[in-house]
């Protein structure tokens, strides 16, 4: 593992650094839990790592509330997501996903940005953020920010829409529709042991329910079931307007089949495609039970 490093201290320096490396090969490093694993296996020649870990800007590593959104900086670690009371109350799905990511030690350093930008189909934070219908704030080396919906952010296995001179600055999660809404929100991660699992299949759900028991908004995303994490649009549509407690067995299955229609899983050493589909169907049904 041999590389050079640049450690900008603030965003202005960061942008400058990116500019000066335009024509050279570089990678960002945040918590390094994905990057070092990759570089230990293979480090390309003349690589420079642009180290985000020493940036002092608070905006990059804080959680902020606005009227419409909760904004989460890309450098927020998984353990921060676990302990933040806003996340716990507003977006249990994200808190659970963060809590079930890797281990205590990894969560201390693993960042939201790193999870997003690795763009693994089994990325747990991605899956939760997708169910929450987040959007991505992307900054370029001119310090310009533009927004991209999270679904457009992922364009293939381990591929994002980021250009070379761009980085992920934050994600914005829209606030829940009504303060009074009750939430049925959670993250289901399937693996063979209870911890340290890379999801064989994952399902993130975030349902908002009004006083009468009617579902007023729904976000469902599935992980490790397709080349990217998928938002199950038609499954969400199916739920909206229905009463959470009134689903018949047939409706539950219809819903599960709708979720399943977004899955195109592969067989690998962790599980076969058959198993992934079977489980996805079952746990989708389980969400409504």
């Amino acid at each position: 593992m041999e590389f050079e490093i640049e450690s900008p201290k603030n965003i202005t320096e960061l942008c400058k650094t990116i500019k000066s490396y335009r024509s050279k090969s570089f990678r960002f490093g945040a918590g390094y839990t994905d990057l070092l694993m990759e570089l230990k296996k293979h480090t390309p020649r003349n690589l420079t790592v642009i180290n985000l870990a020493q940036l002092k800007d608070v905006s990059f590593s804080s959680i902020r509330s606005t009227t419409k959104n909760i904004q989460i900086g890309a450098m927020i670690t998984a353990s921060k997501l676990v302990t933040d009371t806003r996340i716990e109350q507003l977006f249990p799905v994200l808190q659970q996903a963060a809590h079930n990511l890797a281990s205590t030690q990894i969560r201390q350093v693993a960042t939201l940005g790193g999870n997003m930008c690795t763009a693994s189909p089994s990325g747990d934070l991605i899956c939760a953020a997708m169910a929450l219908q987040a959007s991505c704030e992307i900054m370029n080396d001119d310090k310009k920010i533009h927004n991209l919906s999270i679904q457009d952010f992922f364009i293939g296995v381990r591929k994002t829409a980021l250009k070379k001179n761009e980085f992920l600055f934050a994600i914005n999660i829209p606030r829940n529709k009504k303060r009074t809404a009750t939430l049925h929100s959670g993250f289901i991660k399937i693996g063979t042991r209870k911890s340290m699992e890379c999801s064989v299949v994952s399902l993130a759900f975030h349902l908002q329910i009004d006083k009468t028991g009617k579902i007023i908004d729904a976000g469902i995303a599935i992980g490790a079931s397709a080349p990217t994490v998928k938002f199950a649009q038609s499954a969400c549509q199916f739920l909206i307007g229905k009463k959470i407690n009134s689903f018949s067995e047939k409706e539950k299955e219809e819903f599960a089949n709708k979720v399943l229609s977004y899955a195109s899983p592969i067989s690998d050493i962790r599980a076969t495609a058959w198993y992934r589909k079977e489980v996805l169907f079952n746990i989708s049904k389980g969400v409504l039970e």
């Binding site: 042991r193 209870k194 340290m196 890379c198 050493i269 962790r270």
Partner: peptide
């Protein structure tokens, strides 16, 4: 061998 690491050779953890 397809799983020469702790990632895919699944030893149980304290949580199990």
């Amino acid at each position: 061998l397809l799983n020469p690491n702790f990632h895919n050779y699944k030893m149980l953890t304290a949580a199990d």
